[in-house]
Design a protein around this nucleic acid. Structure first.
Lengths: 135, 135
DNA sequence: TTACATTTGCATCGTTGTTGCAATTAAAAT
DNA sequence: ATTTTAATTGCAACAACGATGCAAATGTAA
């Protein structure tokens, strides 16, 4: 799927910043930080524009945000685009990469009487296969 | 358990700020934000002292931090003190309270070949019993 | 009571993210 | 192709959170 199609489908204006972000995020097999995305981007954009683009794309469920330790913010392509289910995220304590674990569906947790839930976030922290191998 | 005992056991100096934070957090049945803790505290402390106290208490596993949407930071007493297992957290989208769901143990997620895990965070978002009732 | 190490408060700084506003740009209408 | 309109951009300024260096104050052990 092309970035332009995605923007059209959501009736969003086609700007190079948005287009670039979508392309970069779609092409990556792991979640990327603001800076990682900026590095891979052709143009040079103001920080404000960047944030506003992320916000817009998030609101339209084109990308989603993953936050680790209230510090590291990463973005990945959203389920709505990939047609996959809610999934767990994995954070590697060594190389600090974040991956969407598409194959790890999120269990339905049983809440106490009277509670209702809308969304569940699961973040598994540990060592990724790469880092385990390098020991 | 008294706050002083906790501090002694961890060989931490007994300062009114630390003591106060532990008391407040232990007395609450839900996780509290920096401001909520400050309001319940007798003394008036500098912001830096506050942060440093949280940091120290966290490092010694006396309290633990829960972060919601990369925005709301709340603290609760740690498992090491209560002798309970790793548990899920619940965030109410309406009243913005955070509770430790002591009775909701965290499922062991099956990671791909080669991965190892050390910790899993589960945050369930929804409506708490209180807010559901008030509809 | 003294001595020592730790902790506190203050000033300052960095990062992240937001807002208002004028200038620019994309897309729709002519 | 040109004009029009509404959305988006870049800039400046700001707010919140958290960290650090340092002198003064405090807790604890001698």
């Amino acid at each position: 799927m092309k970035a332009v199609e995605v923007l059209n489908r959501h009736k969003l204006k086609r700007t190079s910043c948005r287009e670039g972000i979508i392309d970069v995020v779609m092409a990556s097999n792991q979640a990327l930080s603001e800076n990682e995305i900026r590095e891979r981007l052709a143009g040079n954009y103001d920080r404000t524009t960047f944030y506003r683009s992320f916000k817009t794309l998030e609101e339209h469920h084109i990308i989603h945000k993953i936050v680790i330790n209230n510090q590291l913010v990463k973005y990945a392509i959203d389920n709505t685009i990939t047609h996959k289910d809610e999934h767990a995220h994995f954070y590697c304590n060594e190389c600090h990469t974040v991956k969407c674990m598409e194959n790890i569906p999120i269990q339905k947790y049983q809440l106490p009487e009277g509670y209702s839930d809308t969304e569940t976030e699961v973040l598994i922290k540990g060592k990724c296969a790469n880092c385990v191998n390098q020991e």
